[in-house]
Amino acid sequence: MSATFAYYPGCSLQGTEKEYNTSLQLVAKALDHKLEEIPNWLCCGATSAHSINHALATALAGDTLAKAQDAGHSKILAPCAMCYSRLATTLHQIKSDPDKAASLEKALKREKGGLAEMRALSMLDWARELSDAEIQAPIKKKFKGLKIACYYGCLLVRPQKVTGVENAEIPQDMERVVRLLGAEPVSWTMATACCGASFSLSDKPSVFRLGRRVIESARKAGADAIIVACPMCHTNLDMRQTEFQAADERIPAIFITQLMGLAYGFSPKELGLEGNFVNTDAITAALAATEEG
């Protein structure tokens, strides 16, 4: 079913994690989804803004909501978990407290109101709105024998009152997609553990310890690859993995949209798989095995 979203790519998808954007654009096209980029969007402020400047964090999220609203949208797709979380948290605050909504609109000098009526969609929300048949329709080749650890991390699921996921402890949205693509999700213990992304720059010991914990858990569960739906998680579990994990103990981490894209018949090059630091041949090989789909 065709659908249109206000698209909020966020900074990472234009920078170091641009293959997330590329692959999402391809997959969206295959699903007949229109992604209309929010004009002149700004950074969400990420962890830094909500950590040391709460008002700025709120104002930045408000600005994005306002620009999407002005462009005639009510649903914003935010593929970055951080961007999504900032929008969803702000929406949760202004939805549950009309005074906060009024203050935000006043601060942004907006007359028309209705910011609280907007909706932010994470990649999980986006996947949940797709039926099994819709996800399967564009499939050209299915995976066979590929074991996937679906990694959710923090902000796609927590806190539950903000994300509205049904089960924040054992989410199953990505597992469903993985199954529909013919791959096999593994049951593992670190699916919603933190990878330490907020310390990517500033505290390497935390990043290495937490990242390693995730990779080791996925390996122990027998996964061939990890899929993610967050650019920071990807940086940590792919690029940083080469720093904390011995060469023969690594497993590739790719975006859920890259996994879908492969099944939908796009080439690894189109999907930006060569941008990965950890070799992804195990994933593409599992696809080649069933050429007839």
Binding site: A55, L56, L60, D63, A107, L108
Partner: peptide
């Protein structure tokens, strides 16, 4: 305008 808005909120 966002920094101004943040200042107003603060």
């Amino acid at each position: 305008h966002v920094f101004e808005a943040a200042e107003a909120l603060r």
